[in-house]
Design a protein around this nucleic acid. Structure first.
Lengths: 229, 229
DNA sequence: CGCTGCTTTGATTCGTATCAATAGCAGTGG
DNA sequence: CCACTGCTATTGATACGAATCAAAGCAGCG
């Protein structure tokens, strides 16, 4: 579709509303940081003095219960925003699922900068509205869909979001998940066993291939969509 | 706590960031409209040419599946905002659960007005961020909690949100739900029977009273919080 | 009084969780 | 190169919680 140069710019979406001068100022406020897979950036319930922009990698937003149950409430991709502007404490943990690189800002500095840059704030508003729509759509999945429907819906959404990534516009049916079975289960509100069984069944039914642990190939997209309900 | 005059002002939160002059302009853009209980303001998937501010009553945001299953993904109270600024189509239906009154704006006019009023836009951003946090918290409930935990969590949250309403600051343990059992079930991702059974059990356990169909009295808040997990 | 719609209660089924064991793979050191 | 270890995933047997199916109770209302 488009060439990669354009694509990279598009990915740095939050900054895209700024002119070079403003970008420079914002650049001064932030600092790049690498996060190793598995490392937690923000803890649920803690004061979160930072916000950040994801440059590379994938992170998860997790809400936990006292007894260890976990629900992943959001997945964060490059160009997405992390943290809670204008907020006190983080309502969830943010953990890297792959090695990642983020651009971190002191929250107060960022809030101030945002307050004086309406364009940036509008961009943030749009982004937040999109996230809210996505979250609500996910609520339907969690509350009302069966295990098979959940898994199918999940794979279809991942195929969308992950294929956008590489700006190859390539084969949408084949992709590599940045996480394992347990994480899929935590996203879908299922157990790891049920998740595994559903995938196995889909392979048996010829709807997908599982070349390796993390690779998914959707071989019959129409069928997958039917299953997703 | 505070007297009602203060309270009413506080409730009109979105407009609160504007000066009288701006308020007048915004007032010109909007028009008041009454909505009867059960009437749907916006349909899922339809173009939504309006946004609105709730003045009175309670509305629900609903996502439906092709086979009739429904999940309520949000409940809207007075001073809350409805619709999708900067969006095309509504990702969910908006239906009045009680007789309601809203202040409706043409979306384009509102977007334009918002774009030139950063304070309003920031208010909207904060509101949206809060909604997002609430939605994500709800995802944990839908994905990981048992029926008993769901019902208890729900009652506790309703006791919070409904008691704020009347600005009486009154008895937080007693309140009247603006909806019936089926709706509670649609909020919690349960069936009406399971919901009913959980309530009956809680009454038997002395955690709450059910004076009438829609009245709830939490008699043992601590126990309720324990059940909520 | 007898509708009508909502809620409660009961009996049974079904889907997913749970418990338990095995299998596959990746890394390590002999 | 292969045995050993640890981790993740798969598969199987069983239990349990919530859905479903069915019927009865209860309010509001003409």
């Amino acid at each position: 579709m488009t060439d990669c140069a354009t694509c990279i710019v598009r990915n740095r979406a939050i900054c895209a509303s700024l002119n070079p001068e403003e970008l420079a100022i914002l650049g001064q406020l932030g600092r790049r940081q690498r996060v190793k897979a598995g490392h937690t950036l923000l803890w649920e319930g803690d004061d979160a003095p930072v916000v950040a922009n994801v440059l590379e990698g994938v992170l998860k937003l997790v809400v936990g219960a006292s007894d260890g149950r976990e629900q992943i409430v959001g997945i964060v991709f490059p160009s997405d925003f992390i943290g809670r502007p204008f907020g006190k404490e983080s309502p969830y943990s943010v953990t890297a699922m792959t090695d990642a690189e983020v651009c971190i800002f002191n929250r107060n500095s960022f809030d101030e900068f945002a307050s004086s840059h309406p364009d940036l704030q509008q961009k943030l508003l749009r982004r937040t509205l999109d996230e809210l729509d996505r979250a609500r759509h996910w609520m339907m999945l969690l509350g009302r869909k069966s295990a098979a429907e959940k898994v199918a819906s999940f794979l279809l959404e991942m195929s969308e979001r992950l294929s956008g990534q590489g700006c190859d516009g390539g084969v949408r049916g084949a992709f590599e998940l940045p996480f394992g079975r347990q994480q899929i289960a935590d996203i879908l509100g299922l157990t790891i066993e049920t998740t595994s069984r559903q995938l196995t069944k889909m392979r048996a039914d010829g709807v997908l291939d599982l070349p390796s642990r993390r690779e998914i190939v959707i071989t019959d997209r129409a069928a997958m969509e039917t299953i997703a309900g």
